[in-house]
Simulated assay, not measured.
Amino acid sequence: MASIFSRIVAGEIPAHKIAETDEYLAFLDVMPTTTGHTLVIPKKEVDYLFDLDDDLYLGLMAFAKKVAPAIEKAVPCLRIGVAVVGLEVPHAHVHLIPMNSMADMNFHNKLKPSQDELAATAEKIRRFL
């Protein structure tokens, strides 16, 4: 069965997309730890980040590196934190999280933004790409 991320890639589930290439996708987390919390994925479904072949892994990180400055410009923060957890969805992904303190990386504290708030945040980030 396809992961929820593969279903987003296929267009079966809507997402607030930030950036996209033929191989990668960045979109807002719908249960973010902070405003602007973005997920970056390879479109190819591979469960574990370190099972990606070297080219796909390096490309994913390069793609995340291009997205992070746009998030930082759109969402005032001290820096963009990077997290790889990988237990909640069986599809390799990287979290880009705007941070002002270490508490912003706490995955137990989730915001519940409306769809309108997510859409506005995604548009704001896209303007800086």
Results as ranks from 00 to 15, higher is better:
residue 114 S to F: 10
residue 51 D to A: 11
residue 8 I to T: 00
residue 90 P to N: 13
residue 30 V to N: 13
residue 83 A to Q: 12
residue 111 L to E: 01
residue 15 A to N: 07
residue 26 A to L: 04
residue 85 V to F: 14
residue 30 V to C: 08
residue 75 V to S: 00
residue 38 T to W: 07
residue 119 A to P: 03
residue 108 H to L: 14
residue 105 M to D: 07
residue 91 H to W: 07
residue 73 K to N: 15
residue 63 F to V: 02
residue 78 L to P: 01
residue 113 P to C: 10
residue 77 C to W: 01
residue 56 L to I: 13
residue 33 T to N: 06
residue 70 A to H: 04
residue 13 I to F: 04
residue 107 F to V: 11
residue 30 V to T: 14
residue 66 K to N: 11
residue 118 L to A: 08
residue 112 K to W: 14
residue 18 I to S: 06
residue 105 M to H: 03
residue 76 P to W: 11
residue 36 G to M: 05
residue 14 P to A: 13
residue 102 M to E: 15
residue 59 G to T: 03
residue 129 L to N: 03
residue 116 D to P: 13
residue 50 F to R: 06
residue 47 D to S: 15
residue 121 T to P: 00
residue 122 A to T: 10
residue 103 A to G: 10
residue 129 L to D: 01
residue 105 M to P: 11
residue 96 L to W: 00
residue 30 V to A: 09
residue 95 H to W: 01
residue 117 E to D: 12
residue 60 L to M: 15
residue 13 I to Q: 10
residue 117 E to F: 01
residue 49 L to D: 09
residue 56 L to Q: 05
residue 73 K to D: 15
residue 12 E to A: 11
residue 60 L to Y: 01
residue 66 K to L: 08
residue 6 S to F: 07
residue 45 E to M: 02
residue 122 A to C: 13
residue 121 T to C: 14
residue 69 P to V: 10
residue 123 E to K: 07
residue 89 V to S: 06
residue 26 A to R: 11
residue 127 R to G: 10
residue 31 M to P: 03
residue 129 L to R: 06
residue 92 A to D: 00
residue 1 M to D: 12
residue 46 V to N: 11
residue 80 I to Y: 05
residue 90 P to Y: 08
residue 43 K to C: 00
residue 36 G to F: 11
residue 99 M to D: 01
residue 82 V to W: 13
residue 48 Y to M: 06
residue 2 A to D: 13
residue 29 D to A: 09
residue 37 H to E: 02
residue 17 K to L: 02
residue 118 L to T: 12
residue 7 R to C: 10
residue 61 M to N: 14
residue 24 Y to V: 03
residue 7 R to G: 07
residue 110 K to S: 07
residue 32 P to Y: 08
residue 70 A to E: 04
residue 123 E to H: 04
residue 30 V to D: 08
residue 85 V to S: 04
residue 13 I to N: 09
residue 79 R to E: 06
residue 5 F to T: 01
residue 95 H to D: 12
residue 116 D to R: 10
residue 38 T to L: 11
residue 96 L to E: 02
residue 49 L to R: 00
residue 83 A to G: 09
residue 20 E to A: 04
residue 119 A to I: 08
residue 102 M to C: 02
residue 87 L to F: 15
residue 87 L to V: 12
residue 79 R to I: 09
residue 35 T to R: 15
residue 56 L to D: 11
residue 88 E to V: 12
residue 27 F to A: 05
residue 11 G to H: 07
residue 91 H to P: 12
residue 28 L to D: 09
residue 20 E to G: 03
residue 66 K to C: 03
residue 122 A to Q: 01
residue 105 M to Q: 02
residue 100 N to G: 14
residue 80 I to F: 05
residue 103 A to K: 12
residue 68 A to D: 00
residue 98 P to N: 15
residue 11 G to L: 07
residue 64 A to Q: 02
residue 49 L to S: 05
residue 32 P to S: 07
residue 56 L to N: 05
residue 28 L to K: 04
residue 114 S to L: 03
residue 78 L to W: 02
residue 121 T to S: 06
residue 42 P to Q: 13
